[in-house]
Simulated scan of single mutants.
Amino acid sequence: MKRIGITGQNGFVGSHLYNTLGLTPDKYERINFDREIFDESEKLDEFVRQCDVIIHLAAMHRHPDPEVIYHNNVDLVKKLVTSLENTGSKAHVVFSSSSQEEKYNWYGKSKKEGRELLADWAERAGGKFSGMVIPNVFGPFGKPNYNSFIATFCHKLTHGEKPVIDNDGEVKLIYVAELVQEIISQIENEGANTFYEVPHTSVNKVSEVLQKLENFKNLYFDNGEIPGLESSFDLNLFNTFRCYFDIKNHYPVKFIQHTDPRGAFVEVIRLGIGGQCSFSTTVPGITRGNHFHTRKIERFAVIKGKALIQLRKIDTDEVLDFYLDSNEPAYVDMPIWYTHNIKNIGEEELYTIFWINEPFNPEDADTYFVEV
């Protein structure tokens, strides 16, 4: 088992990496890191002593004064190098650099100098160093106006604002889960020191991305229809978009119910995509679920009885409660990385329709059991 520490553990990429490593606890022990550790040399030394691998992601990306970015980022690396030397560490240090290195701005300068400082330490001390030049990263839970233009667009479209394109250029992109797998491959790399450019997984014009997101808004956010997703990029972009909803106020979404003397008719889901649809009955007092997915799209639709559907983002404590009653048929969709369940809180059997965008595969279930 490797002991892994992540500086910037609570940041955009860091939190995804931390949570993904947690899916295989038999392979990786995660050494907890808080930003304040950099401010106390004793705590930083203790952190470094525990780590077989250190992923250095902590960095400032934006500030009104670019020189502040430079000094902050270089100082963090210097503190880490000092701690590596103090502890006699032979850890494998993985460093996230940027294509901005070539642009000679203050951020790029900080990344280049930080990389060189860590590479020099590895050569002197017999440690191991991997430097990764990372393209533009997007994915769930990125900060609007900070991490990615995609985060900004998603937030605006789901909060009643209109996105504006400043520069409609082509952008090389990588999805955060793809980047995490690339970092894990470096964790597992036992070879020589490396410095390389992480391959991007898609190239898109900014306007093309916005057009896709506007389509998601019109079909899905406004009308509940799952759009056609023709590529892995489309699926990743859609799952990113879904994580910017104001979930507390968006769900449950009531169906349009058509009634006549024969009874009632409700359209449960309209698809531009395939998948698997299931039906369940649940006796009173029983809870189903308590698991989460990292890529799947899932809908719970209550058609008879009363239910409590609960969601909790796995690295938070807040539980979201949604009460559904078949007198007003409704659904809740499950965002990725939210553990969820459904409980029969009525006095009769609960009838639920479950739809998921891919058939169940026991060898790649993408289902991780965690209590809400």
Score class of each variant (00 low, 15 high):
residue 106 W to P: 08
residue 105 N to W: 07
residue 69 I to R: 00
residue 48 V to T: 02
residue 96 S to F: 15
residue 79 K to E: 02
residue 87 T to N: 12
residue 66 P to G: 04
residue 62 R to I: 13
residue 100 Q to E: 15
residue 53 V to E: 04
residue 67 E to F: 15
residue 63 H to V: 04
residue 118 L to F: 10
residue 85 E to Q: 13
residue 65 D to A: 07
residue 57 L to W: 05
residue 73 N to T: 03
residue 80 L to W: 04
residue 60 M to V: 09
residue 93 V to A: 02
residue 95 F to C: 09
residue 106 W to R: 10
residue 55 I to L: 15
residue 79 K to N: 01
residue 99 S to L: 15
residue 71 H to E: 15
residue 70 Y to G: 04
residue 55 I to N: 11
residue 94 V to M: 09
residue 86 N to D: 15
residue 56 H to G: 03
residue 84 L to F: 08
residue 64 P to S: 10
residue 103 K to P: 02
residue 99 S to F: 10
residue 95 F to V: 11
residue 103 K to L: 12
residue 73 N to V: 04
residue 100 Q to K: 15
residue 116 E to K: 13
residue 58 A to W: 00
residue 102 E to V: 13
residue 72 N to H: 14
residue 44 L to Q: 01
residue 50 Q to P: 04
residue 58 A to S: 09
residue 104 Y to N: 15
residue 102 E to P: 08
residue 85 E to T: 12
residue 81 V to C: 08
residue 103 K to V: 08
residue 106 W to V: 02
residue 54 I to K: 06
residue 96 S to C: 14
residue 112 K to H: 11
residue 63 H to M: 11
residue 103 K to A: 03
residue 44 L to I: 10
residue 80 L to C: 02
residue 58 A to Q: 02
residue 46 E to L: 15
residue 85 E to K: 14
residue 107 Y to T: 01
residue 57 L to Y: 06
residue 114 G to Q: 03
residue 49 R to T: 07
residue 104 Y to C: 11
residue 94 V to T: 03
residue 54 I to C: 01
residue 76 L to W: 00
residue 74 V to R: 02
residue 49 R to Y: 06
residue 97 S to A: 11
residue 75 D to S: 14
residue 108 G to E: 00
residue 53 V to D: 01
residue 92 H to W: 13
residue 48 V to W: 05
residue 104 Y to M: 09
residue 88 G to D: 07
residue 117 L to P: 01
residue 115 R to P: 00
residue 107 Y to D: 05
residue 99 S to A: 12
residue 75 D to W: 15
residue 64 P to T: 06
residue 53 V to S: 03
residue 55 I to K: 01
residue 68 V to E: 12
residue 78 K to L: 11
residue 98 S to Q: 03
residue 115 R to F: 06
residue 99 S to H: 14
residue 71 H to L: 10
residue 75 D to I: 13
